[in-house]
Design a protein around this nucleic acid. Structure first.
Length: 582
RNA sequence: GCUCCAAUAGCUCAGCUGGAUAGAGCAACGGAUUUCUAAUCCGUAGGUCUCAGGUUCGAAUCCUGAUUGGAGUACCA
């Protein structure tokens, strides 16, 4: 938080001269646009009202009156702005020294000390393979988990598996109809692909025989009532799903603390419904139990179907109560697509009706849908059944192949090519799913998904690779431990005054505040955009300032190492593998 | 119908707790390589920030209303 020291000094200084509160001043301090010059800028418009003078005059008189504190070179008035120029050497040192000292710890803070954040993310449905559209929510949750953790929060990552509901009535019905066998050997040969097919087979069959839908609902009701045969099948399906999920999560570098899905909460539903009835919060409507929300202009929240079985709404309500009781969270975040916005608004309203004071701590972190091109050429939500979705494993495979081709062309000597290609490919996919504001819908196109030109994951990772490569080369040619050497070094920071060096240093200084602003908005794209800007400036620096063999070699190596550290920290928080060679 | 979300360069997007000349990438055009990784860098061109009002010294940013697109709208999840 090096930049803040300068802001504080400016605020203190101007407070003494204008009488405006320090906090109000530091709030408006910005960076001048490129071309204007200066490092910090204070718009004097806010002073105009209290001082009853024009901003222009205020800025000019301040520029003349103030005694610059240490570490400042100059203050210039421009069009009602007061622009400060800091002492370059001092600024460079104040930015680089903390990075050099803290390393992996640079940018972490203790703002979340003692608080617990529950993050519900990924949460796919049982019996289905992860599709491309699951990537966004999964990586959003993964990145937010890492960022909260780095800020001192205790994070509980929950995969709220969709493992209960009428769909599993369908799956079981179809499994039995196809006579697939219910002994261990049949189960052992069962795959996730087969389960996927059963869904599609059911949907297909139900078009011709709509009564199958009722049959599936009845199967589910029986399952929920505790039928042992159905329960066994359910368990087998769940195990197969989980095995496949964990395989993919490992590739993505994602971990969970819990896989408590919906089924876990079914037992808690009856007593909750009873309580709601006793408190008069729940009414009977067309044979079902609902919480009326018409005062809030929302449809009712259904707790129990007319056949007595529960819905996902019921189980979500139980889960929220359970999470509060178990983890005493400060926030309970649901990383779920925007399509479920109404559901979560309802959930919070129901909690409020129950007079629960933490209702507002349950927050839906919504993200946009992955749209696919429909038959009529319009972009719409992908339907598994219509074949409108691509499997995540296929996308990863294609991306890895594409990256491998590029490696073969650019760097054929690289060892462990396949492994690195996959890491870079995963990084590219992860980065692109976190690159834009989370609410944006995304049109799925193979060409775009497999395009790695420009501002993409590989661009940022490549910057990290090039920086690492310079340090490695130094170590090899000089036969010294470069990092240990830097540890002992006493660099002269006035040797880093080229424009490209200063731009890079300026970017590195921003890392801690960027991390904090991600938490304010739950928006990792702030970090991915930041990663691009650091990579850009790192590429620019090493392109125009030769490091090895230069007379500023020591200082340049020092800066390269700092940039490498910041890039690595950024990539790690995003969930992009920071490889060192590619 | 109602509710929520979005709209910025030809395309994909940053910028939104109001501040100086609205920024990137892709696509187009021109240049840089005896490489510390050119998976790079530099330059040219490209804009009525959907429209109309309002608030303000100042609006892409805040408010109101339209238009267009997307999503959702009780026995699915």
């Amino acid at each position: 938080m090096t930049a803040n020291i300068y802001k504080e000094k400016i605020a203190q200084l101007l407070c003494a001269h204008t009488g405006v509160a320090e906090s109000d001043i530091s709030k408006v301090i910005t960076t001048p646009p490129s071309g204007v010059g200066g490092d910090f800028s204070v718009p004097c418009f806010t002073f105009a009202r209290v001082m009853k003078k024009s901003p222009k005059i205020i800025a000019e008189s301040l520029a003349g009156d103030i005694n610059l504190p240490e570490d400042f070179d100059e203050a210039v008035a421009v069009n009602g702005y007061l622009n400060f120029f800091v002492n370059k050497k001092g600024y460079t040192q104040s930015v680089l020294l903390p990075i050099h000292q803290k390393k992996e710890q640079y940018g972490v803070s203790a703002t979340g000390e003692g608080k617990t954040i529950v993050i519900d993310f990924s949460s796919p449905n049982m019996g289905k393979e992860l599709a491309f559209h699951h990537l966004r929510g999964t990586m959003l949750g993964n990145s937010l988990s890492r960022i909260y953790k780095s800020c001192g929060y205790r994070v509980v990552r929950i995969n709220h598996l969709g493992d209960w509901g009428t769909s599993y009535g369908k799956l079981i019905t179809m499994y039995i109809k196809e006579g697939l066998g219910e002994d261990d050997t049949s189960f052992q040969s069962l795959t996730i692909e087969k389960l996927n097919q059963l869904y599609q087979a059911f949907a297909h069959a139900a078009e011709a025989q709509p009564e199958l839908e009722d049959e599936a609902r009845e199967t589910f009701r029986t399952l929920e009532a505790g039928d042992e045969r159905y329960r066994k099948l359910w368990q087998v399906f769940r195990d197969i799903t989980l095995q496949e999920l964990k395989r993919l999560y490992a590739i993505l570098g994602v971990e969970f603390d819990e896989y408590k899905g919906e089924a876990f909460f079914v037992d808690q539903a009856p007593s909750l419904i009873k309580e709601m009835q006793e408190r008069g919060l729940c009414t009977t409507s067309r044979g079902s139990q609902v919480v009326e929300l018409d005062t809030e202009d929302m449809p009712p929240f259904m707790l129990q179907k007319s056949d007595g079985s529960t819905l996902y709404a019921t189980r979500d309500l139980c889960a929220a109560l359970y999470r509060k009781k178990t983890f005493n969270f400060a926030k309970n975040l649901y990383i779920v697509d925007m399509g479920q916005a109404l559901h979560f608004r309802q959930l919070v309203s129901v909690l409020e009706k129950m007079d629960i004071e933490w209702a507002q701590d349950c927050e839906h972190i919504a993200f946009g849908l992955i749209l696919t091109k429909g038959k009529d050429g319009k972009w719409e939500r992908g339907k598994t059944r219509a074949g409108g979705v691509s499997l995540l494993k296929d996308v990863i495979e294609s991306a890895s192949q594409k990256i491998l081709e590029i490696i073969n062309e650019k760097n054929p000597e690289l060892v462990e090519k396949e492994n690195i290609a996959r890491q870079v490919a995963v990084g590219a996919l992860v980065f692109s799913s976190l690159k834009t504001k989370r609410r944006n819908d995304v049109n799925f196109e193979w060409d775009k998904v497999l395009s790695f030109d420009g501002d993409t994951g590989p661009y940022v990772v490549n910057a990290h690779v090039r920086l690492s490569s310079i340090l490695r080369k130094h170590q090899e040619t000089k036969a010294v431990d470069t990092l240990a050497m830097l540890e002992e070094a006493d660099p002269d920071f006035s040797n880093l005054e080229e424009e490209q060096a200063r731009e890079l240093i300026g970017a590195l200084a921003l890392f801690p505040e960027k991390v904090l602003s991600v938490l304010e908005k739950n928006e990792p794209c702030i970090l991915s955009q930041y990663a691009i800007s650091v990579a850009e400036k790192a590429h620019g620096f090493i392109h125009s300032c030769r490091v090895l063999g230069s007379k500023e070699e020591l200082e340049r190596l020092y800066l390269v190492n700092c940039a490498r550290i910041v890039l690595k920290n950024t990539l790690t928080l995003l969930g992009v593998p920071p490889v060192e060679r590619m």
